[in-house]
Computed example of a mutant assay.
Amino acid sequence: MKRSEVTKIVVVNGPNLGRLGVREPEIYGSDTLDNLRTACTQWGEELGFKVDVRQSDSEAEVIQWIHQAVDEKTPIVMNPAAFTHYSYGLADAAAQVTDVDIPLIEVHISNPAARESFRKHSVISPIATGTITGMGFYGYKLALEAISNILED
């Protein structure tokens, strides 16, 4: 996959990220999903990509979005949220992305390794092209830049 072949990146967010700004502000801050959508859209435009930011509390819907990205050969920035730790269905879908050399960058707003013990294991990290954690919304910018750089190589 080459940079010239890609015009779009999908940002897929899992459960409870629709509650940003309300949920655990001491961990996630006061920014909302709409703030994230605006920031990712702007960062994508700066890199020459259209960015489509999505969020769902439904595992099935997230998996369908990943299947769509594979079919359309669209790179993914994914914050699987709670699905990170146990969703083998999501891991199987994510493997389809990287199996066909489409970049998939796993992002977490907080640092799961610094939180509760159950959050320390990711079923997505071993599959992902790369993982960025603990950088807040800035992690999404880094992920978009990483995809741009991967596609240049």
Rank of each mutant, 00 (worst) to 15 (best):
Q64M: 03
P15N: 01
H121S: 07
Y28R: 11
G18A: 07
L20Y: 04
A93F: 09
A95Q: 08
P80D: 03
S122G: 14
Y140A: 04
V123C: 10
V51N: 08
E59H: 06
S122A: 10
L47P: 08
G44M: 00
E46D: 05
I66F: 05
L90T: 05
E59N: 10
H67K: 13
A146D: 00
A93Y: 08
I132R: 03
A95T: 05
E72G: 12
L17A: 00
G44K: 06
G29E: 01
W43K: 12
F118Q: 09
I132G: 06
T98K: 11
R23G: 04
D92H: 13
R115C: 03
A113S: 15
T41E: 10
I147L: 07
D153S: 10
L104A: 14
A60C: 01
R119Q: 15
P80H: 03
L104K: 05
C40F: 03
V12Q: 05
A146L: 07
P103N: 15
D92W: 01
Q42R: 15
T7Q: 14
V70T: 09
Y138V: 06
Y28F: 11
D101C: 05
E5Q: 07
D57I: 02
A94Q: 08
D101G: 13
G48T: 07
C40N: 03
H85E: 01
E26A: 15
P15C: 03
G14N: 00
T129E: 01
D52C: 07
I63T: 08
D153Y: 12
A82Y: 05
L144R: 08
T7L: 06
A114N: 05
L90I: 02
P112N: 13
E59T: 03
D101F: 11
A114H: 09
G29V: 05
E116H: 15
S122V: 04
L17V: 00
M135S: 08
S58Y: 09
G29K: 04
L47N: 06
K120A: 13
E59L: 12
T98G: 14
L33E: 09
V70A: 05
P15G: 01
G14R: 02
I150N: 14
L17K: 02
V100H: 15
H121G: 11
V107A: 12
K141A: 10
E61T: 12
E116M: 12
S56E: 00
S87R: 02
R54Y: 04
G44V: 07
T133K: 12
S117I: 14
I76P: 06
Q42Y: 11
V6T: 15
S117R: 15
E145A: 13
T131N: 14
T74A: 03
T41Y: 10
R19E: 05
M135T: 06
G44W: 02
M1F: 14
